[in-house]
């Protein structure tokens, strides 16, 4: 596969076709062997999950953890709350997802662009990227209230204003991982591929479009694997400080302060579902887009 990739990139069409065929065969062989393992890897966690749920509902878990049904409400009650409040929950989910996805897209696009800039000016690019990585250390808790104040003048509608503030928080957290990975994608090329392109007297633009951009594609997904969960976490936390009271994270906070633990758990479950769903979408997208491309 290592070779297949390079050949497809630069070599003539015949080798390209041959390379594709061989990888397909390899995958087919792998698939047959993997099937059993794949079933098992899914089955065991599912069984474990069901076991935990049963222990939880029958309150055995409460005895083990030394807690009560108030602090750790029964799953039945939590599910019931979710079903009783579908419209309210959807409204909060929508607010959270818009912030998370909006910030993720903005941050990723900006990060990719920063990666391009850093690559275009290699002298300070790598240094700039490492400084940018320091931004990941900025706690959301610290920047969320600041952004709230900064966005005060942007809109008269507090709903839009606080949406913007929250999206900016998510954007900041997502920008960094994308810029670092995009930069790596642009610069960590296959050995000799750059020399090969140069031997063809390819222009910088051609090298960028035909070598660097395709090479960065897997790196984009590496970045997204970090930013997708991070975007949801930042969205949930930034809601704590938002001016307009909406969102799954905000509901968790309000419910816990009001000692409504069952409701808080319901929203925690919803938050988990959002995270898992978005990650699953990412993995599927990655599988489809990078089909036969992942060379590692």
């Amino acid at each position: 596969m290592e070779n297949g990739y390079l050949n497809t990139e630069a070599g003539p069409l015949k080798i390209n076709a041959a390379g594709e065929v061989s990888t397909k065969k390899a995958r087919a062989r792998k698939k047959a062997g993997l099937n059993k393992d794949a079933v098992m890897t899914v089955l065991y966690p599912v069984l474990f999950g069901i076991l935990v749920l049963v222990l939880w509902q029958t309150q055995v878990l409460h005895k083990i953890l030394g807690t009560d049904t108030f602090t750790l409400p029964l799953p039945g009650r939590i599910i019931n709350i979710i079903f009783e409040n579908v419209p309210a929950i959807l409204k909060n989910v929508q607010a959270t997802v818009i912030v998370a996805v909006g910030g993720l897209l903005l941050g990723s696009v900006l990060g990719y662009f920063l990666g391009i800039v850093a690559m275009a000016f290699p002298k300070w690019g790598s240094g700039g990227i490492s400084i940018a990585s320091a931004f990941t250390a900025v706690p959301i808790v610290a920047i969320a209230p600041i952004l709230n104040n900064l966005t005060k003048d942007l809109s008269d509608d507090p709903h839009i204003r606080s949406m913007l503030a929250k999206t900016l928080v998510v954007m900041i957290t997502c920008t960094v991982s994308m810029s670092i990975n995009a930069y790596r994608g642009f610069t960590e090329l296959k050995p000799f591929s750059l020399d090969l392109m140069k031997s063809y007297a390819a222009s910088k633009t051609t090298i960028f479009l035909k070598l660097r951009v395709p090479n960065s594609l897997p790196y984009i997904f590496t970045a997204l694997r970090v930013s997708v969960p991070a975007s949801i976490i930042s969205a949930l936390v930034s809601e704590y400080f938002a001016e307009f009271i909406i969102g799954v994270g905000r509901q968790i906070r309000e419910s816990i302060v009001l000692a409504q633990y069952a409701t808080a758990w319901a929203y925690i479950l919803v938050a988990c579902a959002i995270g898992i769903l978005m990650y699953a979408i990412l993995l599927i997208a990655e599988g489809v887009i990078l089909k036969g491309r992942r060379h590692r």
Partner: peptide, 8 residues
């Protein structure tokens, strides 16, 4: 006091 939990 709006409680989402029907029991509460």
């Amino acid at each position: 006091i709006q409680l989402s939990d029907p029991a509460a």
